[in-house]
Simulated assay, not measured.
Amino acid sequence: MAADERASHLRYIKARHAGEFALRALDEQAASTFSHSFASDAERYAWVLGQTKQMFAGKPYLVALKKQRMYFALAAAAFGLSIETLTNGARVKLVTEARQKIICFVFLMTETDWRTLGKMFNRNSSTIHYAYRKYADEITPLLGDAVVRRVPKKTVR
């Protein structure tokens, strides 16, 4: 390997480790005890959007990271749940509803497809689609112009 290739590879490895460190910090924040108390889901989503704006401001290396992972970690923290709780097979009503809302939120805020989100949440793509259909009408008006993805409704003939 030439010296230029080796230097380029080392810069790539360092950037990758910096990104993984930032994601690990987000996971730890979500797993820790959360001090905020939200009266509604609208306040939760507004807090997550505010946090992501602060994270992206002045830190261009964070933009290269997977945004869906950041939204996932922050939304988990906003709901007061850890990422492990959201990705395991728990069927407790509180956890299931929070998971479905977070799935819909992450889907609306990113360009991620069903299958990729399913892998992230340890679910299949039909579960992701179900969560989107269940909560999209509720979450989309709360997010307003911040929504990245606009999925047209299917019309029944």
Rank of each mutant, 00 (worst) to 15 (best):
A25T: 10
G80P: 10
R115M: 05
Y61P: 02
L143F: 01
D41P: 01
Y61S: 15
A39F: 02
G89R: 12
L81T: 01
P60G: 05
Q29F: 11
R91E: 10
D4Q: 14
T140I: 11
E138G: 04
T87E: 11
I128F: 10
R115V: 08
A18M: 09
V48M: 02
I139P: 11
E5P: 00
S40H: 06
E20L: 15
I102S: 14
D4L: 07
E111T: 05
N124V: 15
Q54W: 05
E84P: 01
D27N: 11
K14I: 05
I13N: 02
V106E: 07
G118W: 07
Y12T: 09
F121V: 07
D145E: 09
A31I: 06
V147F: 03
A31Y: 05
K93M: 01
V63S: 02
D137T: 09
A57G: 01
L86P: 02
F105C: 12
V95A: 01
S32N: 11
V63H: 02
I128C: 09
R24H: 03
A2C: 10
T112N: 02
D113C: 11
D113M: 06
A131N: 00
L74A: 03
L117I: 07
Y45M: 15
R6A: 11
E20Y: 05
A75L: 09
G50W: 02
R69Q: 10
M109K: 13
E111K: 07
T140Y: 10
R44P: 06
K119Q: 13
K93F: 11
T155K: 14
R123V: 01
E84L: 08
A131Y: 01
T85I: 07
K93W: 09
Q51L: 08
K53Y: 04
L10E: 13
L108Q: 05
L23G: 04
R99E: 10
Q51F: 03
K59G: 00
V147W: 08
A76Q: 01
P152W: 03
H36W: 00
H129G: 05
T85H: 03
F56H: 05
A76S: 15
